[in-house]
Amino acid sequence: MTITAPAVSVPKRRRRLDLNASLVVGVVLTIGFLAIAIISFFWLPSNPNIPNIKARMMPPFSPNHWLGTDGLGRDIVAQLMVGARTSILVGAGGASIALVLGTITGLVAAAYGKFADEAISRGADILLSIPGMVTALVLAATMGSGAFTTILALSAFFTPSFTRVIRSAAMGVLQEDFITSAKLYGRGRLFILARHVIPNIAGVMIVQFTLYFAAGILTEAGLSYLGVGVTRPSISWGMMLNEAQQTVGISSPLAIWPGLAIVLVVLGLNLLGDGLRDVLDPKLKRRSA
């Protein structure tokens, strides 16, 4: 006897294909980005910080300088590669600190009673209404600019969104039956949070981290463009755009490459985050992509 398989519903298949496209493109772009940053530690076309007056303003596709050189003769490819490191350091650094602080505050708000919840949630609301760019300017005014200041500013203004997201995810998990049984079994609050809640909200945490990694790269580029982000000898894509505008005018190809790099990397991370959200949290209907 043969059993005929039920007809496959077409919309469902198409949806899954759709999701994979977002995830695949995201993964490819992100791996490419990480790989370039790693390679930059072992190999660079030339030193991105040493001027070479003889090789000033070489056009793209010149021998030894695939994308040409800038107004001081520094190789563009080398600068872009080192810039990828900065994006990772600052973007991931800011998002990581925010993840740790946001997880602690979010879990405390979710599990340690009404008063803690009210205090933390209102505090997060207030912090969320402070413009991050402006906070970063204040920090730059007092601490001086640099990668460390930028990471600090990013984590200060990312943390409240992490708190909110993690709090609401944790509250959902805390209502599940297995939490009740763990409590009845005599498990303490910390044990429950560590063993039951965190593993169940890990997906949300990863997605949130990915999306804010991207937001961090965008903000860092903006701050460095303004001249209050990272400074040489570190190199940032935003700084390269600033230098291009200051020294050779915006119409040169120098104003194209760093911007393109930012768009590809941020797009990749955002697609990765959206794709991961669908894979890790099938219950959450995707509405916003």
Partner: peptide, 23 residues
């Protein structure tokens, strides 16, 4: 919209001023 979100606002400004201002 996804691509638009990934474009830094200052780069959009640079591109627009190259197109409408310079060219």
């Amino acid at each position: 919209s996804q691509i638009g979100i990934a474009i830094p606002v200052f780069w959009a400004g640079i591109l627009l001023s190259v197109l409408f201002g310079v060219r």
